[in-house]
C-alpha cells in the first residue's frame, strides 16, 4: 500500500512535466512575441527588446520551460502583466471568495444528489423514477448561461431576494452574496450527478450478491442502503473526489456574472487582457490540484474496495 502510494506519487512527476510542456508550448512557443500586443502599435524595437529582457523571453526555450516546471513546484508564478501584482498574492486573495462559494455549493449538491438517487433507485421503474430522469435530462439540456442569466434577473433583479453582484468578506456577510450563485451551482450539478449515481446504483442492484441478500430475507431498503450502496460508493467516491480540484478554480462563469473577486474572476480578467503569466499560473494551479486529487481518489478507491491489494 505505502509502496503503491509512493509509486503513484512519483508518477506525478512525468505528468507534471507533461502539463508544463503543454502550457509551455501554448504560451511560449505558439503564442509568438507578446511584446507587440503589450506595448501597443507605437512601440519601438528598443522598447520591445527591453520588455522581452524584462519578461525573461530572451532566455533559451529550454530555460523558459524550466521556469514553468519550477513554478509548478514552488508556486512562484512571477508578476501579472496587467496588474503588475505578484501572482501568488493574487491567488491567495482570490481563493477565499472562491472557496466561500464552491465548498458549500459542492457539499450540498453532492449530498442532495446522493439522497435523490437512492430514493429513485428504491422506486426504480416507477413514476417518480421516470419523472426524476426526465427532469435530469431536461435540466442538463439547458445552457448553464441561461440558468445564470435567468436566475440572476428573476431572483435578484426582479424579486430582489438576493444581491445582484459583489462580495464581502467574513461570515455571515458573504452569505447573501453567495446564496444565489450557490443555488445555481446546485441546480446545475444535480442533473448530471443524479444521473451518474443512479446508473451506478442500478448497475449494482442486478448483481448476484443482491439476489443472495434477498434470499436471506433482508428487506429491500436494507439491501439498498447496506449492500448496494456500499458497493456503489466505490465509483461514486472517485467521481466526487475528482471534482474537488475544480472547486479551486471556482465557478468561472458564476464568479464572472456575480462579480465575485475569486480565482475564476481573476482567470477571466486575465483572459480578457491577454495576461499570459496569470493564465499560466491558473492552468498550472488547477492541474496540480487535479493531479493531487486524482491521487487521493485512487487511494480512497483502494480503501473502499477490499479486492484491490498492493504489495
Amino acid at each position: 500500500m505505502t509502496k503503491y502510494i509512493i509509486r503513484r506519487l512519483l508518477y506525478m512527476i512525468p505528468v507534471l512535466l507533461g502539463v508544463s510542456l503543454i502550457i509551455f508550448v501554448l504560451f511560449n512557443v505558439v503564442s509568438g512575441d507578446p511584446t507587440a500586443v503589450l506595448l501597443g502599435k507605437n512601440a519601438t524595437a528598443r522598447q520591445m527588446a527591453d520588455l522581452r529582457e524584462q519578461l525573461g523571453l530572451n532566455k533559451s526555450l529550454f530555460l523558459q520551460y524550466l521556469d514553468i516546471v519550477k513554478s509548478a513546484f514552488t508556486f512562484d508564478f512571477g508578476y501579472s502583466w496587467a496588474t503588475k501584482q505578484e501572482i501568488s498574492q493574487m491567488i491567495k486573495q482570490g481563493a477565499y471568495p472562491s472557496l466561500c462559494l464552491s465548498i458549500p455549493a459542492f457539499v450540498i449538491s453532492t449530498v442532495l444528489s446522493l439522497l435523490i438517487s437512492v430514493f429513485v433507485a428504491y422506486y426504480r421503474g416507477k413514476g417518480i423514477d421516470l419523472f426524476v430522469r426526465v427532469f435530469c435530462i431536461a435540466g442538463m439540456s439547458i445552457s448553464a448561461l441561461a440558468y445564470i442569466l435567468f436566475f440572476q434577473w428573476f431572483f435578484a433583479y426582479k424579486l430582489g431576494w438576493f444581491e445582484i453582484s459583489g462580495f464581502e468578506e467574513g461570515f455571515p456577510n458573504f452569505i447573501s452574496y453567495i446564496a444565489l450563485p450557490a443555488v445555481i451551482w446546485i441546480v446545475l450539478s444535480i442533473g448530471p450527478d443524479v444521473r451518474f449515481f443512479r446508473t451506478v446504483i442500478l448497475d449494482e442492484i442486478y448483481q448476484d450478491y443482491v439476489r443472495t441478500a434477498r434470499s436471506k430475507g433482508l428487506p429491500e431498503i436494507k439491501i439498498l442502503l447496506h449492500h448496494v450502496l456500499r458497493n456503489a460508493m466505490i465509483p461514486i467516491i472517485t467521481y466526487v473526489v475528482i471534482q474537488i480540484p475544480s472547486l479551486i478554480l471556482g465557478a468561472l462563469l458564476l464568479e464572472n456574472f456575480f462579480s465575485i473577486p475569486g480565482l475564476g474572476g481573476i482567470t477571466l480578467n486575465a483572459l480578457n487582457s491577454s495576461d499570459f503569466p496569470v493564465m499560466k499560473a491558473m492552468a498550472i494551479l488547477s492541474s496540480v490540484g487535479y493531479i493531487i486529487f486524482g491521487l487521493i481518489s485512487d487511494i480512497l478507491y483502494t480503501v473502499a474496495d477490499p479486492r484491490i491489494k498492493f504489495k
Partner: peptide, 25 residues
C-alpha cells in the same frame, strides 16, 4: 411474509460462489 420465510425456513445456495457473495463485506 416471504421475507420472514426466506433465509429462515427456506434458504438457497447459488451456482456462482464467485459473484454470489458481496465483495466488500
Amino acid at each position: 411474509k416471504m421475507r420472514e420465510l426466506r433465509g429462515n425456513q427456506v434458504s438457497m445456495i447459488f451456482q456462482e460462489p464467485m459473484t454470489s457473495l458481496n465483495p466488500v463485506f
